[in-house]
Amino acid sequence: MYVAYLGPRGSFTHQVAHQAFPDAELLAFANITEVIKAFESGQVDFSVIPVENSIEGSVHETLDYLFHQAEIHAVAEIIQPIAQQLMATSQGKDIEVIYSHPQAIAQGKQYIREHYPHARIEMTASTAYAARYVAEHPDEAYAAIAPHAAAEEYGLEVIAQDIQEIDENYTRFWLLGKEAPKIQLPSQASKVSLALTLPDNLPGALYKAMSVFAWRGIDLTKIESRPLKTALGEYFFIIDADNSQPDLVVYSLKELTSLGISYKILGNYLVYKAR
């Protein structure tokens, strides 16, 4: 079995992929789009991608590609606790440049502002790529924000621990595949994720779409708008709904159709908690 993940080794996505598929051949890709395309092209059996962080919100590259360009679904979700570490090739360096993924930089921006106000920030495709780049330039005044696993993987020293602004920091990861895998982690819930496109001539369209779920007692855990990329002011809406009673969800989708509201299923999955 082959599984694609956002690499290189030592990233949070790599940790999730290893926990979900401990015996699989894990293949690293440089960015989220390439990870998705690896499954789309049949190169791998599953792809592991980040979809939302509890501090910084949705990963738009993931959601936009799945809505606009792909006909593939999330078949499982894994929630990974996130702790960000500041690391360098040695302690005591006068850090001039800090590298990391935009989400990790955003999660640690308060610490950086307080302790390294003059450091230049450089974005990378993943936290692990940042750590590897710093390790490859030991004579430079560089640091990276990345997980502990990246420090171990690339021989870096952690110079500041747990720099994320909020202790309760989690990231949702979706597993893209043809069918649900067998995962040896505790499951917490069953959910379905939808992208809704509302008709222009339906007054109160968003309210009516939400009421389809509300009056059936279906809990919505996420509602977010994203640009349709057609014209200014036109959006599609992403919702996550509890799917513990799938028959009710099916009836809800039929009612959406009767109202003229289009939907695309982004995922139908069990939610697991990573170690």
Score class of each variant (00 low, 15 high):
16 V>Y: 03
24 A>E: 03
27 L>F: 11
126 S>V: 02
117 P>Y: 07
47 S>Q: 02
260 G>W: 06
166 I>C: 08
245 Q>G: 00
17 A>R: 05
27 L>T: 01
223 I>M: 14
210 M>G: 08
96 E>K: 15
249 V>F: 06
46 F>S: 01
238 I>R: 14
195 A>W: 07
122 E>N: 12
208 K>A: 07
86 L>T: 06
170 Y>S: 04
204 G>W: 05
57 G>C: 04
152 E>W: 00
76 A>F: 07
21 F>K: 01
76 A>W: 04
200 D>Y: 11
139 D>Q: 15
129 Y>P: 00
85 Q>I: 00
95 I>E: 12
205 A>P: 13
233 G>L: 11
46 F>C: 00
152 E>D: 13
251 Y>H: 13
159 I>W: 08
269 Y>H: 05
5 Y>C: 00
102 P>Y: 04
101 H>N: 10
210 M>R: 09
60 H>L: 11
81 P>T: 00
207 Y>T: 14
60 H>A: 12
215 W>S: 10
117 P>S: 03
149 A>L: 15
97 V>T: 15
21 F>S: 03
209 A>S: 13
271 V>K: 00
255 E>M: 12
45 D>F: 01
76 A>I: 07
214 A>H: 11
132 R>G: 02
140 E>R: 15
88 A>M: 11
175 L>Q: 05
251 Y>N: 13
188 Q>T: 14
127 T>N: 11
267 G>E: 11
46 F>L: 04
177 G>I: 01
29 F>R: 07
26 L>Y: 01
179 E>L: 06
24 A>H: 00
174 W>Q: 08
234 E>I: 14
